[in-house]
Write a protein that binds this DNA or RNA. Structure first.
Lengths: 69, 69
DNA sequence: ATGTGACTTACAGTCCGTG
DNA sequence: TCACGGACTGTAAGTCACA
């Protein structure tokens, strides 16, 4: 699997988990202390987030990062 | 677990795997196409790597990223 | 509720050298 | 073989307005 594909898959998993919890991008963004538009970029796999950000998002979603990467 | 601690643990795991394979920091850096001094920073948990770089390192170490995060 | 573009600032990441 | 430094360059981080 190529790196770009992995980024997109990563974003998709965030979106899936978020939707399964029934919360909006906006709310999740606020929970993870991330700008709403930036969260959109991440979910679309357009941004190459740092590990710290990835951990922040996992904390907000209350899941293990292993389930996201 | 705090984010900084996670970064340090992440770096330690890289170092452990690398040593178990008997290769130097410099060689791993070359394999992962990362600067040698930067690889040192990562192993010490001093740098907040991007997901792409994390994937690159995993590929070089031939391990799953789940075993690193 | 989300996508997108334009923008600035912070820091990821490189390159070269030293002990 | 690795830690650490300085000086860079590229891009992630972060904010906003508009559709």
């Amino acid at each position: 699997m190529k790196t770009d594909e992995r980024m997109i898959a990563f974003g998709k998993r965030i979106r899936d988990v978020r939707r399964s919890k029934g919360i909006s991008q906006e709310v999740l963004a606020e929970m993870a202390d991330i700008d709403r538009s930036y969260m959109g970029n991440i979910e679309r796999g357009e941004k190459n987030v740092t590990l710290k950000k990835a951990y922040d998002i996992c904390d907000a979603l209350d899941i293990d990062i292993k389930d996201l990467v």
